[in-house]
Simulated assay, not measured.
Amino acid sequence: MIQAEIKSLLREDISILIKITNSAKHYLCDCGEASLLTVKEIQSVSAVFISHTHIDHFSNFDGIFRHQIGSGEKVVICGPKNIHHQIEARLKSYTWNLIDEKAIEYEIREIISPEEINVYMLRPPYWNLELVKTQNFLFEDDQVKVDFAILDHKTASIAYLFKEKDSVTFHEEASGFRKGRWISELKTAFEKGDSDKEIEMEGTVYKAADLFHLLTLNPGYKLGVIMDHAAKEENYEKIKTVFNKADLIYIESFYKDSDQEFAKINYHSFASASGKIMKDCQVKEAIPIHFSRRYTESDVIEIETAFYKAFREN
């Protein structure tokens, strides 16, 4: 199952670590201050997802990189338009005469549109960008698939949805057959929708469709991170398209309702607006995050109260 941990304390800039149960791989959403993020966790990060490069979301990239250099691993970085130039500039600002060219490899995925992702490679010691390809999906590995929405924050701000792979359960007690290779063949046919696939069991050949009743599809858990965005309908339509009926969403609620004029000026959301869009998306659980650093703990309680009232009201 996918789990998320906020690694930033109150009044620190936001950073969220995403973990998969029984997996050594981690994913990091944004690189703000993160007092609770350990070196071991950083070294387990295989992909970094940047919403946008305002300083409070990007300032700690160098700190993250500091603990990855020398791993010899490939780390994927996803982010908005021009993220490749910004990563390149950060890396080229240091001297690398003592670093081996195999110390690390960054694969940067620049989000141009929902259908256009430019993929670049960056390697030490010169950190010269190499455009590798353009693809129509953002990220997928053996654990998760990541979808996204490009929101307006007076700059592109990427909201990410992490979806665990679907699983298929075989109901042995209902089959009446001995276990065998046929079970994996049946699951594969089920996943591919190959109803006519022939499955042989105990000397008899069956069509896969006649055995599908022995299987149950378990939809993968869906966890979203929605960072800075203006509280406006254009953004809400994009959020609904990608995050509808997600299991858990962390969503920016930067301002109190009484400060929503500031939210409008600064292209941020505010407590009840974030709660309402989560209700409209019919998500199972939602958590407000990323509050203005001007606020005290009592202000945060006020934000959370207004958020959950809007999220849960009938």
Score class of each variant (00 low, 15 high):
residue 207 K to S: 12
residue 138 L to M: 05
residue 281 C to P: 02
residue 254 F to R: 00
residue 244 N to I: 12
residue 187 K to C: 10
residue 260 Q to I: 03
residue 135 Q to H: 10
residue 237 E to F: 11
residue 153 H to L: 04
residue 10 L to V: 14
residue 135 Q to Y: 04
residue 312 R to N: 09
residue 87 I to R: 07
residue 124 P to F: 12
residue 9 L to E: 13
residue 262 F to L: 04
residue 96 W to F: 02
residue 135 Q to T: 09
residue 136 N to Q: 14
residue 175 S to W: 09
residue 20 I to A: 12
residue 290 H to L: 01
residue 96 W to N: 07
residue 117 I to M: 15
residue 248 L to F: 12
residue 145 K to T: 08
residue 4 A to S: 13
residue 312 R to I: 01
residue 50 I to H: 02
residue 55 I to E: 00
residue 81 K to F: 06
residue 208 A to Q: 00
residue 54 H to E: 02
residue 207 K to G: 15
residue 160 Y to G: 08
residue 226 I to N: 02
residue 3 Q to G: 03
residue 88 E to M: 13
residue 190 F to Y: 12
residue 235 N to W: 15
residue 217 L to E: 07
residue 10 L to P: 12
residue 71 S to I: 09
residue 160 Y to L: 12
residue 125 P to V: 07
residue 245 K to T: 08
residue 172 E to I: 09
residue 2 I to N: 01
residue 176 G to M: 09
residue 195 S to I: 11
residue 139 F to Q: 03
residue 228 D to R: 14
residue 116 E to N: 10
residue 40 K to Y: 05
residue 281 C to F: 10
residue 211 L to E: 04
residue 69 I to D: 06
residue 166 D to R: 07
residue 122 L to P: 03
residue 194 D to H: 05
residue 278 M to V: 08
residue 95 T to C: 06
residue 268 H to Q: 11
residue 148 F to D: 07
residue 39 V to I: 15
residue 150 I to E: 13
residue 233 E to A: 06
residue 227 M to L: 15
residue 78 C to W: 07
residue 233 E to M: 09
residue 213 H to F: 14
residue 259 D to Q: 07
residue 20 I to D: 02
residue 45 V to F: 07
residue 233 E to Q: 13
residue 98 L to T: 14
residue 187 K to V: 14
residue 32 G to F: 02
residue 295 Y to G: 04
residue 141 D to E: 04
residue 172 E to P: 00
residue 138 L to P: 01
residue 232 K to W: 07
residue 15 S to I: 12
residue 138 L to D: 04
residue 87 I to E: 09
residue 20 I to R: 06
residue 139 F to L: 07
residue 287 I to Y: 15
residue 31 C to A: 15
residue 114 P to V: 06
residue 115 E to C: 02
residue 118 N to E: 11
residue 175 S to V: 07
residue 269 S to N: 13
residue 104 I to K: 04
residue 66 R to W: 05
residue 314 N to K: 13
residue 56 D to P: 01
residue 34 A to W: 02
residue 156 A to M: 13
residue 80 P to M: 02
residue 24 A to S: 13
residue 33 E to T: 04
residue 80 P to I: 04
residue 87 I to S: 14
residue 191 E to R: 10
residue 185 E to S: 15
residue 126 Y to M: 02
residue 147 D to G: 05
residue 92 K to H: 10
residue 26 H to Q: 14
residue 135 Q to V: 09
residue 251 I to W: 01
residue 15 S to G: 08
residue 142 D to R: 11
residue 38 T to C: 03
residue 5 E to L: 14
residue 240 K to V: 06
residue 61 F to Y: 13
residue 255 Y to E: 09
residue 255 Y to N: 07
residue 2 I to F: 11
residue 27 Y to I: 14
residue 73 E to G: 05
residue 299 D to A: 00
residue 43 Q to L: 09
residue 202 E to S: 14
residue 298 S to D: 03
residue 63 G to Q: 11
residue 84 H to A: 13
residue 178 R to K: 06
residue 27 Y to W: 12
residue 53 T to Q: 01
residue 66 R to Y: 09
residue 170 F to W: 14
residue 220 G to D: 06
residue 214 L to N: 01
residue 307 F to D: 00
residue 38 T to A: 07
residue 33 E to V: 04
residue 152 D to R: 05
residue 200 E to I: 15
residue 125 P to Q: 12
residue 10 L to A: 08
residue 246 A to K: 03
residue 74 K to V: 05
residue 119 V to K: 00
residue 191 E to W: 08
residue 142 D to L: 11
residue 182 W to V: 03
residue 113 S to F: 02
residue 22 N to E: 13
residue 234 E to S: 10
residue 269 S to Y: 03
residue 140 E to T: 10
